[in-house]
Simulated assay, not measured.
Amino acid sequence: MPSAFKTPAKLSASMPIALDGVTLLRGNTTVFQSLTLGLNESRIGLIGDNGAGKSSLFRLICGLDLAQSGQVHVPVAADRAAPAVGMMFQNPDEQIIFPTVEEELALSLRHLRLSRTETQTHVRTWLAARGLADWAPRAIGSLSQGQRQHVCWLALLIGAHQTLLLDEPFSSLDLPGQVVLSKEIATAPQQVIVSTHVLDHVRHFERVIWLDKGCVRADGLGTDVCAQYEADVSARMG
């Protein structure tokens, strides 16, 4: 029986997630044109207007979208059965499959090839260690939207991915929920990349990328890039 706590999957290569000359088309729309980008820092924020390409970038990294040209490099885990990248969608109802919390979290452990009983014990022990023992049997339908979002976050953590992609993770959360998630992002051992319109959640990050119509408008320290984006929005709205 494995430990109730798992560390992120060790990667077989030291190179970061990277896009090399990637072009992505969606219908007649060019989302990215020859985009080159390396993602190596432990905390990266993605900001920009709706339609800037933030979600599309995540979908490329996860393999949900395929580039028409160029390469998307995602290091594989040394244990190839372990998923290196996990993604949390904007809408938890598009992500959650199973009717109870413990069944949903169990899905993230399928690569361990445990028995049903072992998986259930693993999930319940893991939740209990986080002070959430009573969540295990709860029906997803009984949870608020913010609680469902938290289930998606828990599913990423228990899956021990190397990199976590969070697409607008604060959108369904009340203020206490945002505080909790911010603290958990800060302490997670994984690389975390956060796409958000709530700039205060990424302003302190070591790196923030401002996407504008599929292009990198600014890339650097979170405080600097967020300030540039805010100034641009203020000028456009003025």
Rank of each mutant, 00 (worst) to 15 (best):
G48W: 01
D49Y: 05
D49M: 10
D49K: 01
N50Y: 13
N50V: 07
N50Q: 12
G51S: 09
G51H: 14
G51L: 12
A52H: 05
G53S: 02
G53R: 01
S55C: 15
S56C: 11
L57H: 15
L57Y: 13
F58L: 08
F58D: 12
F58N: 06
L60Q: 01
L60P: 15
I61V: 09
I61H: 05
I61Q: 11
I61P: 13
I61M: 12
I61S: 14
G63A: 12
D65W: 06
D65Q: 13
L66N: 05
L66D: 07
L66F: 12
L66K: 14
A67L: 10
S69I: 07
S69M: 06
G70R: 00
G70I: 10
Q71D: 11
Q71I: 04
Q71R: 03
V72D: 03
H73Q: 11
V74G: 08
V74D: 01
P75N: 01
P75G: 02
P75H: 03
P75A: 00
A78D: 14
D79A: 03
D79P: 13
D79L: 02
D79V: 02
A81K: 08
A82F: 15
A82D: 13
P83Y: 01
P83N: 10
A84K: 10
A84V: 05
A84M: 09
V85A: 14
V85F: 02
G86M: 05
M87I: 03
M87Q: 07
M87C: 11
M88A: 14
M88S: 07
M88P: 11
F89A: 03
F89V: 13
F89W: 05
F89C: 12
Q90A: 12
Q90N: 10
N91Q: 04
P92C: 04
P92L: 00
D93N: 14
E94Q: 10
E94A: 06
Q95F: 00
Q95L: 05
Q95T: 13
I96K: 07
I96S: 12
I97F: 06
F98A: 12
F98N: 13
F98M: 15
F98G: 09
P99L: 00
P99S: 02
T100E: 15
T100Q: 07
T100P: 04
V101K: 11
E102I: 12
E102S: 04
E102H: 00
E102C: 15
E103N: 04
E103Y: 00
E104F: 01
E104S: 01
L105P: 09
L105V: 09
L105Q: 02
A106L: 06
A106K: 14
L107H: 04
L107K: 02
L107T: 10
S108I: 01
S108T: 07
L109R: 00
L109M: 14
L109F: 04
L109I: 15
R110K: 13
R110G: 08
H111E: 09
H111N: 11
R113F: 15
R113L: 08
R113S: 07
L114F: 00
L114P: 07
S115F: 04
S115Y: 06
R116K: 14
R116F: 11
T117E: 08
T117A: 15
T117L: 15
T119E: 06
T119A: 13
T119D: 09
T119V: 14
T119C: 11
T119G: 10
Q120F: 10
Q120Y: 08
Q120I: 06
T121Y: 05
T121I: 14
T121W: 07
T121E: 05
